[in-house]
Nucleic acid binder design. Structure first.
Lengths: 267, 267
DNA sequence: AACTGTGAAGTACTTCACAGCA
DNA sequence: TGCTGTGAAGTACTTCACAGTT
């Protein structure tokens, strides 16, 4: 797919930072909640609090979409919901297939947030013949043999992989060959895909390990605070590793698209 | 949001960038795979490919931990596994509780990666009295009433919230009050926590929405290619994107530690 | 008076490119 | 020679702070 800056001046200067894109769903969720409570307008300060980010960041983010607010007043909730939905491509309905209907796959199939958020589970696919025909979340599971046909017939471009790690790459290859260009991968594996295909990864053990890192550091600091002179919680450092005082982050409430590395780049 | 962060002068600088921390689990997984195949050493180039990042980034990341490689040779696999495990705090076993044993909670409980990666499911907790005593993944579910006792008795500092959104904040408050200082939140809600408590969020619908954004953009570019001046070659194309070392692997897609905003959700 | 939108300044992360060591 | 380790340069993101608008 087109790489580089494909010169497209017609619409507003495209080029929304990836970090901003990653926060739009957050804003959308907060706005949807406000909308359900029939709140007509909201200030950047209020909305930012609801989304768990700071208001300067939110305003900057919105400035990439256009000027949708009113100075002295704030943002019209309904209007913003529409604009962000449109920007995210949620004004259309994306058919999605879930491959691998184990515990996790079933949980995903049962997730209620699909329909309401621009997605539709087009099919559930599993390699186990015994699963075939069994309904999960009201949708009959189909066998992997049908994969290509399902993708084609339904015009599916987004696939969710919830298989064991060993099967993930193969499933991925078949999805891509059949026309899928965006993949959400729950298997603990790095997927190799051709250019033009986006992959995002969700991985429980990685998240836990990151928490463990910070948890350990907290323990270390407590210990250090007690004796001041000799740190060294069990199994600490061999010698050289350097260290600096921790950087500010953490602690508080910034669960936003945290300092992670964007998983996907549109190249 | 650094709170009154105790400044620790004595020890030298341990300021591992958050982005680096988020990638350590990735390296660890790749190294573990190499270790299982009894590979003794690995170069930054090879390991980077296996982890899905580029080699300069990997070397820089490792440089924050110390100098664990050998010039002209590479890294000793076992030694690196140990060093990274230690850095992440995985040389100890973290007891974890999962609250909310619906589809997702059960999937998490059944997830095999815990034990092998430094974590142990200390307890499963659910608010439904009918669930109490029922074994899930071989562990009997306990009622929410027991939450505080469970946390205290097991010295749990990491909690996983897999409840419906409406219950998440309340569960979070109780976990924190009982002593939990790290939370992995699967509920589609922004949690408010005191300083010193880390929250990481995993949210399926957010991930899908980010994919939809890019998917939509691809569609838009195709359309633009049809009428525009530049006839973009279907599929391929590399305009001027740097042709760095393309290790046949992951074409352009960097599945780094997800950046940012993970996603999933309970029933 | 209240609140948005945005240049400019600041910070974090990535990539380059090469010195230095085994 | 081959590959690590790292300053320096480059890029992306965040935050500040205030001019502009209703």
């Amino acid at each position: 797919m087109a790489t580089g800056r494909t010169h497209r001046p017609a619409t507003r200067s495209r080029g929304i930072p990836e970090a901003t894109v990653a926060r739009l769903p957050l804003y959308l969720r907060a706005l949807t909640a406000l909308s359900e409570r029939s709140v007509p307008t909201v200030s950047s300060e209020e909305l930012a609090a609801a989304a768990g980010v700071n208001s300067a960041k939110l305003r900057k983010d919105f400035s990439y979409l256009g000027s949708y607010g009113t100075r002295g007043v704030g943002y019209d909730v309904e209007y913003l919901v529409y604009q962000i939905s449109r920007e995210l491509g949620l004004t259309q309905d994306w058919p999605v297939v879930i491959v691998g209907i184990g515990n996790l796959g079933a949980a995903l199939a049962n997730y209620g947030g699909f329909a309401s958020r621009g997605f539709r589970v087009a099919a559930l696919i599993d390699a186990d013949p015994a699963m075939a025909g069994k309904p999960v979340a009201g949708i009959p599971v189909q066998h992997t043999d049908e994969l290509e046909k399902i993708i084609t017939d339904n015009g599916v471009s987004i696939g969710v992989i919830a298989t064991p790690a060993g099967a993930a790459q193969q499933v991925c290859d078949r999805l891509v060959a059949a026309g899928v260009t965006s993949i959400l991968n729950f298997a603990p594996t790095v997927l190799t895909v051709p250019d033009g295909v986006d992959v995002r990864k969700v991985d429980l053990s990685i998240e836990l390990q990151i928490l463990a890192f910070h948890e350990q550091r907290k323990a270390g600091e407590e210990a250090a605070a007690l004796d001041g002179a000799v740190p060294a919680p069990a199994g600490r450092d061999d010698s050289r590793t350097d260290r600096t005082e921790r950087t500010g982050r953490t602690g508080g409430t910034d669960q936003g698209p945290d300092g992670d590395v964007p998983a996907v780049m549109p190249a």
